[in-house]
Structures are given as structure tokens and as C-alpha cells.
């Protein structure tokens, strides 16, 4: 009896999901102890404000990652969708809701393109999405004639979409409502990954594609869908991005995807595919966001965030590899 109990506690900590929650708490505690400014409510709101689009991208990219692929186009893609949507709102006078829908559809389209390139044309995911990364970066500039795009501010007409993420009360207290939405989306997508056919087959494709095909499953369709979902979430991420960044610059967004991918991997998504969780990704992304926001408060510049994130990533990937190697050594089948 005692033995089983001990084992379950151990396995709790060998599960990356729980480790990463611990890391989030630990980081938050360190920054709060070290810096009085970090403890302020406004810092908390700022952190959450910038976290939404990272979390949404992280949730999306978890699906291609779990199939054993990746999507590098989500960063420049998100900026491209925000640019195009915003441009239509500003210059063509379409309602904000239409701008948002255009951004989502654009994201789904690029996702589908990625999916077809990877699942049907058999391009390596890295290569295919690197290409669409460049394409979306260029397209964003071209479609907006290289102009910067400001979405309506919250005082302007059409600025209602800011209230999706943040409500300002009469006494000027800000409620970060967006946090609720990302939590709800995390729960929904965690359910999709764990309890629907789509999620199950995404895991199966990443774990053993050949066996999945032989089980009579339409692997191409589900493989494409993984990228479509990722594209959709890049489109969704464009909304909080447009809300958080006052003026969107064409040609930016490269590198943002790496923070999202890094978050997913820190959160336990296997870099080689086959396993991972959305709730883990959620916390993993917050590790990255905490480092981004927190380190300047203890006197370390933003570049340190990149160095530390890189180091943490190496650590998590090594844990994954060592685990698999140990499984091989003890004679268990990994494939």
C-alpha cells in the first residue's frame, strides 16, 4: 500500500505537467520576493495582457508538434492576419468584427496550406512552414502597402474588441477578462486532444504514423487538420495581439513563434511527437511569459530571457530523450 502511494507521488513529479506548474509558481515567487514593483497589480495585468497571444499560439502549435512536426509560420502569420484585418477596418471601413473574421479565415487558409504541404506533398514540416513563414511576412507588407496598421483604440469607434480582454471599471481598476477566455479555450482544446477522434489520431500520427495508416485511418485528413487548427489559433492570437500592440508593423513577428513553441515544449509536448498536453502547454507558455516580464524587474535585460529560455528548453528536451533512452535500455518498445 505504501509502495503504491510512494510511486504515485513520484510519477506525479516525473510528469512534466506538474513540474511546469511548480516552475510557474517558483518563478512568480522569486520575482515577487525580489522586486516590489513586480508585486504590483498593474504588472500582473501587463503580464496577462501580453500572454494571451502567446498562449493561443502555443495551444495551436501543440497539435503540429504532437504529430511530430512543427509550425514556424505562426509568428509572422499572426502579424500578417492582424495587419490585413486592421487594414480593412482602417482603410476599407469594414466593421471590426469583419476584420476579425478575415484574420481567422486567413489563418485557417495558411494552416490548410501548411497541412497540404506536409501531409500530402510530404515536405518536411520545418521546411514547409519556414516557407510559409517567409510568405506571410512578405504578404503582410504587400497587402497593406507597407504601411503600419493601428487598430481602433478603445476610445475610438470599433474599439469594443478591447473589452474582450480587459474591462476598465469606474474606479479605473482593470479586469483582465482575457485570462478567462484563454483558460476556457485551454480546457476546450485539452478535451479535444484527449477525448475526440481528432486528438487521438493526432497523437497516433506522431507516435507511429505507419501503424495509424494501417489501422485504416484517413491520416492525411487528420494530419492536415492539425495544421488547420494551428492556423486558426494563430488567427485567434491576432485579436489580442491587435489589442495589445497599438500600431502593428509590417515585417515583424519573426521569432514570436519560437517563444510559443518553446512554451509548448517546456509544458511537456514531446519534441519528437506522440505526446503532450494542452494544459501543460498553457503553463509552459506562462513560464516563458514570466521570464519575459519578470527578468527586467530583477535587473536582467530581455536578452537574458532568451538565454534562460534556451537553457530550460535544452533541459526539458534532454529529459524527454533520456526517458526514451531508458525505456529502450530496459527493453521496452518505444515505437
Amino acid at each position: 500500500m505504501e509502495k503504491t502511494k510512494k510511486k504515485s507521488v513520484l510519477s506525479l513529479f516525473s510528469n512534466q505537467k506538474y513540474i511546469v506548474i511548480l516552475v510557474v509558481i517558483l518563478l512568480a515567487a522569486i520575482f515577487m520576493i525580489a522586486s516590489a514593483d513586480f508585486r504590483k497589480y498593474t504588472t500582473f495585468v501587463t503580464l496577462l495582457d501580453m500572454s494571451y497571444y502567446y498562449v493561443l499560439m502555443g495551444i495551436g502549435v501543440a497539435f503540429p508538434l504532437i504529430t511530430g512536426g512543427v509550425d514556424l509560420s505562426i509568428g509572422t502569420g499572426m502579424v500578417c492576419y492582424a495587419l490585413v484585418g486592421g487594414y480593412l477596418v482602417r482603410n476599407a471601413g469594414v466593421p471590426v468584427i469583419v476584420g476579425i473574421l478575415v484574420a481567422l479565415l486567413f489563418g485557417i487558409g495558411i494552416g490548410a496550406l501548411n497541412g497540404v504541404l506536409v501531409a500530402v506533398m510530404d515536405l518536411p514540416a520545418f521546411l514547409a512552414t519556414l516557407c510559409t513563414c517567409m510568405i506571410t511576412r512578405g504578404l503582410g507588407s504587400l497587402l497593406t502597402f507597407k504601411s503600419t496598421v493601428p487598430w481602433p483604440t478603445d476610445k475610438q469607434p470599433g474599439g469594443w474588441f478591447h473589452t474582450i480582454f480587459k474591462i476598465t471599471l469606474a474606479n479605473n481598476t482593470k479586469i483582465p477578462l482575457g485570462f478567462l477566455w484563454v483558460i476556457i479555450l485551454t480546457i476546450i482544446m485539452a478535451f479535444v486532444l484527449k477525448h475526440t477522434k481528432f486528438g487521438r489520431y493526432v497523437i497516433a500520427i506522431g507516435s507511429n504514423k505507419e501503424a495509424t495508416i494501417l489501422s485504416g485511418i484517413n491520416v492525411k485528413f487528420f494530419h492536415i487538420m492539425a495544421y488547420v487548427v494551428c492556423g486558426l489559433f494563430a488567427g485567434l492570437a491576432a485579436i489580442p495581439y491587435a489589442s495589445a500592440i497599438p500600431t502593428i508593423q509590417p515585417g515583424t513577428g519573426a521569432g514570436v513563434e519560437l517563444d510559443a513553441i518553446g512554451g509548448a515544449i517546456v509544458g511537456g509536448v514531446s519534441a519528437t511527437g506522440g505526446s503532450g498536453s494542452i494544459e501543460g502547454t498553457f503553463f509552459g507558455v506562462y513560464v516563458i511569459c514570466l521570464l519575459k516580464v519578470g527578468l527586467p524587474f530583477i535587473g536582467l535585460q530581455a536578452n537574458w530571457q532568451q538565454v534562460i529560455t534556451g537553457a530550460i528548453l535544452i533541459g526539458t528536451v534532454m529529459i524527454d530523450i533520456v526517458k526514451k533512452r531508458r525505456a529502450v535500455a530496459t527493453g521496452q518498445a518505444v515505437a
Binding site: 477522434k197 487521438r200 497516433a204 507511429n208 505507419e210 501503424a211 489501422s215 518505444v334
Partner: peptide
Amino acid sequence: NMVGDLTVAQNIFIGREFMSGIKI
């Protein structure tokens, strides 16, 4: 032809899962 990351039951019924609505 096994998918290592899924459970035994999930493997046995892969491709013809029992559903209740959209939930497996």
C-alpha cells in the same frame, strides 16, 4: 503495428472508437 503512446484499449479500438457524441 502499435501506437506506443496510446493505451492498450485505445490501440485495440483505433479507427473504430466507441463514441458518445463527439467524445470518445
